[in-house]
C-alpha cells in the first residue's frame, strides 16, 4: 500500500486549511503592494524584481508611477515600452502632486533619450511646460538643468550668436543650489568646447566651485582648470589662489609637479606686473 490509511483525512484537513487561508484574503483584504521593494529593485537596475514587487495592483498613483518607470527601464529598450510608459506618465502628469511632476519629468526624458529616435525639441518643450506649471518643484528645477544642456549643444538659439546666453538665462530660475551648481559647471565646460572667451566662461566654473559639493575627479579637475584658465586669461591672483589650494589639498598627486610649475609662472608674472606697476 502506497498511502497510509489516514491519508484521505489528512488531505481533507490540508484542503480545508488552504481554503481558509485563501478566503482570509477576501475577509481582510489583499496584502498591500510593497512599493519600496519595487523602488529598491529599480534603484539597483533590477526591473524584473521591480515588476514582481508591484504585482497586478496598480490602483494607486504611486504604483502606476513605479510601473511606468519600470517599463521605461526594461530591457530590451523598445519604443513599444516607451509608448506604454508615456501613456501612463501623461495621465499621472494631469494631477497636482509630486507624482505629477515626476511623471512629467520622466516623459520629457523619454523624448530626450529613451525613444529610438529622440525628439529634443519636444523634450525641451516638456521641460519648459513643467517649469511653467510648478516652477518650485524639484523635478521642474532638474528639468531646467537638462533644458540648459539642450540649449548649449543641441538647440542653439539662431537669433543669439552667443551660445552660452540662452543657458545662462535659465540660471535665475533655478533655486536649488546643487542644481544651479550643475548648470554653472556645464556652461563653463561648454564654453571651453565651444571656444568662448576665457573671461566669459571662467566665472561659471568659479561659481560652481563656490557652491561646492562636486566630488571625485570632477573636483580635482575643476580646481586645476580654474587655476590654469585664469593664468591663461591673465587673472593671475585667481590662478595663484587655485593652484595654491590644489597643492594644499593634493600634496602628492600625479599633477602636483605641473601645478607647482604653473604656480611659479603665475607668481613670476605677478612679480613682473608689480614691478611694471611700480615704475
Amino acid at each position: 500500500m502506497l498511502y497510509p490509511v489516514r491519508g484521505p483525512r489528512l488531505v481533507r484537513r490540508l484542503t480545508l486549511i488552504l481554503l481558509i487561508t485563501a478566503l482570509s484574503g477576501l475577509l481582510f483584504g489583499a496584502a498591500p503592494v510593497k512599493l519600496d521593494d519595487a523602488w529598491r529593485a529599480l534603484s539597483d537596475g533590477r526591473d524584473r524584481d521591480a515588476l514582481r514587487a508591484i504585482g497586478n495592483d496598480r490602483s494607486t498613483r504611486a504604483a502606476q508611477l513605479a510601473y511606468a518607470a519600470t517599463v521605461m527601464s526594461q530591457q530590451p529598450a523598445i519604443d513599444q515600452n516607451m509608448r506604454e510608459a508615456e501613456a501612463i506618465f501623461i495621465e499621472l502628469a494631469k494631477g497636482d502632486d509630486a507624482i505629477a511632476d515626476e511623471a512629467a519629468y520622466l516623459r520629457a526624458r523619454l523624448w530626450q533619450l529613451h525613444y529610438f529616435t529622440p525628439d529634443l525639441a519636444k523634450a525641451a518643450e516638456l521641460y519648459t511646460e513643467l517649469a511653467a506649471r510648478h516652477p518650485q518643484s524639484h523635478w521642474a528645477q532638474l528639468g531646467l538643468v537638462k533644458l540648459g544642456l539642450l540649449k548649449l549643444y543641441a538647440l542653439p538659439d539662431p537669433a543669439s550668436p552667443d551660445r552660452l546666453a540662452p543657458a545662462e538665462a535659465l540660471l535665475a530660475r533655478i533655486h536649488e543650489p546643487a542644481l544651479q551648481r550643475d548648470l554653472h559647471l556645464q556652461i563653463g565646460q561648454a564654453g571651453v568646447v565651444l571656444r568662448q572667451p576665457l573671461r566669459r566662461l571662467i566665472p561659471h566654473l568659479v561659481a560652481a566651485d563656490q557652491i561646492g559639493g562636486i566630488g571625485a575627479t570632477a573636483y580635482e579637475d575643476l580646481v586645476i582648470q580654474i587655476g590654469e584658465l585664469s593664468l591663461r586669461a591673465g587673472l593671475l591672483e585667481q590662478a595663484k589662489v587655485y593652484f595654491t589650494r590644489y597643492l594644499k589639498e593634493y600634496p602628492a598627486a600625479l599633477r602636483t609637479f605641473a601645478v607647482r610649475k604653473r604656480l611659479e609662472e603665475a607668481e613670476r608674472q605677478l612679480a613682473l606686473a608689480a614691478k611694471e606697476g611700480g615704475k
Binding site: 513605479a66 527601464s73 520622466l106 533619450l113 529613451h114
Partner: peptide, 15 residues
C-alpha cells in the same frame, strides 16, 4: 550611464 540614471533618480527620491 545616463539612461538608467533617470529611473534610478526617481527611485531614490521615492525611498
Amino acid at each position: 550611464l545616463v539612461k538608467p540614471a533617470d529611473t534610478q533618480i526617481v527611485a531614490y527620491a521615492e525611498l
